[in-house]
Amino acid sequence: MTLKFVEGIKADVTADIVYMMCPMHLLKLDELIRELDKGQVLEIMTDYDGAMEDIPAWCSRTGNEFIGIEETEEYYKFYIRKLTD
């Protein structure tokens, strides 16, 4: 999967899990996506490089949209739109 880099995406919910260990990015994603309404956007902030593979793969497996990634000096911001009920 090709990673799509984005800028200025507005999120409905943000999870700052910078410095939290793998696989917290997947556990948080799974937990928070349940709290969103269909069409809403989740932002995950993490410094874990492996998330670049895991989060798009999770989206494709669960039928949610991986909007893209924004890179900062210290961490990544991942944007996911909830498409499932």
């Binding site: 700052d16 899990i17 410095y19 939290m20 260990m21 793998c22 696989p23 917290m24 556990l27």
Partner: peptide, 20 residues
């Protein structure tokens, strides 16, 4: 909440992924 802290002990997801 919201305070960033790098782990001292690396490993799994015990203690919310902060202390393995």
């Amino acid at each position: 909440e919201g305070t960033r802290i790098a782990p001292l002990i690396y490993g799994g997801i015990q203690e919310g992924g902060r202390r393995a």
